[in-house]
Amino acid sequence: MGNLQYLSTTTLDHLRSSISDNLIRYRENGFNDMANHNGWTLELNKAKIDKDRLSDLHGGVGSEYEVSNSLVVFEGLTDLTPAMANEERIWVRLCHVECIKYSRQRWPLKDIQPKKKSFLANMAASIKNAGTDAIDQKDIKQITKHFFAKGRPGIRDDNAISRLWWNAQIAKLIEPSDSRRALNQLLKTADIRASLIERPLLSNRIKLLRGIVHFMEANPEIAINEKSFRDFIKSVNFNGGGRFFEVMSESSISKFVNMCASNANNGIFEESA
């Protein structure tokens, strides 16, 4: 295992402003030839990277892959603290070098088209230019969102690698001894992740999240469809005001979550008792 590397601010700024110039690199050639250049190899002394473990990332889409990939990233980057994990330059280096293969598979870009040489083909190509530009623009948007990580939402939800680390970190806070158990519930669907992780008022209440995860395990029907789950979370938000979950017992939180689910099921969002 080596020290985890990250980019200089100048390199990050340059990469961000050169996405369109680098499209062929993002789509095909990669950045390996630049990986040891000035500004690409700043090192964190304490955080380590296990490149073998990161090679287990699978570009498939779906809850099962999200869970296993989150664990792969968490185990592949050891001693990374939550404060360090807010540093965009770490994640951008990973997306451009060590994890570019996974990032491309998970967030695919347009395939490279072979150059047409005949006159007619060139004519046809110029007619299609407008379409190509649109594809390029779509790719630039995809790269900006998933290969970079601006701000808290970018790091937590969008960057191809950091979102996986944060999934596992939040799961570890919820279930320190078995984060896969929490991940299985948090990542069941994109909508559930959005409801539980992307809303700070809920995601920063770890004891309540633990209660919700346990309830979801015991009552899988709550997540049977988007409406059912959204109504449940709406009820939790509605009834949770003024409660200090952090000092409540697990059984009291469980009772509260059950009451919210029951109210949601009956279309009631106000606490009945």
């Binding site: 939550p82 807010n86 808290r152 200090f244 000092v247």
Partner: peptide, 17 residues
Amino acid sequence: VVAGAFIRCEDTFFSEH
């Protein structure tokens, strides 16, 4: 009765009393 504080940091998901 207990005196204390709930301390929260959104950037690191720290939330403890």
